[in-house]
Design a binder for these strands. Structure first.
Lengths: 127, 127
DNA sequence: TGCAGTTTTCTACGCTTCGTAGAACTATAA
DNA sequence: TTATAGTTCTACGAAGCGTAGAAAACTGCA
């Protein structure tokens, strides 16, 4: 239960981008304004109903990606983990289902840019 | 369009396991017999109709994961790429959608077993 | 050459997920 | 205590997936 729909992803992107917890209304506005909402820049996001945003937020909460403060009245929503953490976790998930992990890693490393290979060497160096 | 359903995955597992191209009937039998079909061992797979297997194979073909020889009468199906290649590609896909690739890699490396870290070091060494 | 069996394609149905939002309910501020 | 802002409930249509029958296409044999 890890994959996200298009709107769900847009919402997560906003939550990951902002450091503060956001309300449904804030997000709604950002979705309407931001080009992050629908792919390419120059493409203004759609005007969504607040209920739509709330539904999506609930679903994201059920999926464990979002956490909400129920105390305050306009509930405030925030991502449970950073985008980097989440993505890394996803990568592990993908890798995890493979019986031939080493082979996968080999292929993976094989098609990484030189710059990133360098980064990886550094990261692996001091372990 | 990368995610697979449960049955689709079972079929891919069989195709990845065998080296020869297989027919729908062969796969049907293997699905009925193998425990690879449904998770745990000891759990015998279900008896599926051949048409079911064929439908799934067509869908996998459309997704670009499977390739079929139309020449021979019982068509023969095989995986387009190895499981390792496919999985590595998936990992790149997941990583690719992140603007903060380096941060993701850092998190990813951070939670890799020591054995695998060693493997990675070796792989990165001779590049 | 025409049939009987085999294989493939077409069509379809039920279930689940996702985008979308109205209706109804609830808390809050004045 | 009531208008108003916010939340939950319910729902519908599209797409993806498991599943398979019906129909069409093909093959080997009589």
């Amino acid at each position: 239960m890890a994959s996200l729909g298009e709107l769900e992803r847009s919402v997560m992107d906003l939550l990951w981008a902002g450091q503060e917890a956001a309300t449904a209304n804030t997000l709604r506005d950002q979705l309407a304004r931001t080009s992050a909402a629908r792919g390419g820049p120059g493409h203004e996001g759609k005007e969504l109903a607040v209920t739509t945003v709330l539904t999506v937020l609930s679903r994201l909460e059920k999926k464990g990606l979002v956490e909400r403060e129920r105390g305050t009245r306009p509930h405030r929503y925030q991502a449970v983990s950073s985008r980097a953490d989440h993505t890394a976790e996803l990568m592990h998930e993908v890798l995890g289902s493979a019986p031939d992990r080493e082979a996968v890693l080999a292929r993976f490393i094989g098609s990484v840019s030189e710059g990133e290979a360098e980064t990886l060497r550094k990261l692996l160096g001091h372990l």
